[in-house]
Amino acid sequence: MNKINRSDIEAAAKLSRIELDSKNINSITEDFGSILNFVEIIQKAETGGVAPTSQVTGLNDVWRDDEVVKSEVEPRVLIDSAPETLDGYVKVKKVL
């Protein structure tokens, strides 16, 4: 059984940059434990010497030539979608 407590959830929420209210934390803590138990079955799998699979295409060396290609979208449009901008920059709250 996986013992998951509030602090584990808070740590994961911090990594994910997600604010949780206390109601959220309680319900997620509960779910989290049961999800981890649910996926526990993989621990029983005999994986000695088994290579991990991160993709299933079998592809290699997929690349493009080093050439400048004009953006399909005007740079201006890409900036205009930002919640806050200033003089062509994307504006954010002060980085400390």
Binding site: E72, V73, P75, L78, I79
Partner: peptide, 13 residues
Amino acid sequence: KPNSNICPVCMAL
């Protein structure tokens, strides 16, 4: 100029 060499990919659309 700032943000003039950008596209959907490097802006992570």
